[in-house]
């Protein structure tokens, strides 16, 4: 699929081992697309999880999360898949957005 228009602009990844379930990202997400899992993770925390659709890639959940890498926000590239040299390259391009 090369038509980016139908995709969400953003995509959320939550590291289920790192998340401590504080819920701040859920509170912060403007379109309310983060939920709390019912089951506990390996360490006994309920963790945040992406609802699966609707992320705008705004990044606010990343900033309010107290854990260094529990949250990763990705953005749609506007280009067909496979054109990117590396994730780091992409991160650099988006840092100023």
């Amino acid at each position: 699929m090369t038509d980016a228009g139908k995709r969400d602009r953003g995509l959320l990844r939550v590291d289920q081992d790192e998340c401590k379930g504080c819920g701040l990202c859920i509170e912060a997400c403007p379109p309310h697309v983060i939920q709390m899992m019912e089951r506990l993770n390996h360490y006994g925390y309920r963790t945040a999880v992406y609802a699966g659709a609707g992320c705008t890639g705004c990044g606010i959940c990343f900033m309010v999360c107290p854990e260094p890498g529990a949250i990763t926000v990705l953005r749609l590239t506007n280009r067909p898949a496979g054109r990117f040299d590396s994730e780091a390259e992409g991160a650099k391009r988006c840092a100023g957005n």
């Binding site: 260094p68 749609l76 898949a81 391009r93 988006c94």
Partner: peptide, 20 residues
């Protein structure tokens, strides 16, 4: 989410490198 779809996304906000 399939890898094929995720490949159309790139990391915009991720773990800072200044952390170990």
């Amino acid at each position: 989410m399939s890898n094929a779809t995720e490949a159309e996304y790139e990391v915009a906000h991720g773990r800072p490198k200044a952390f170990y």
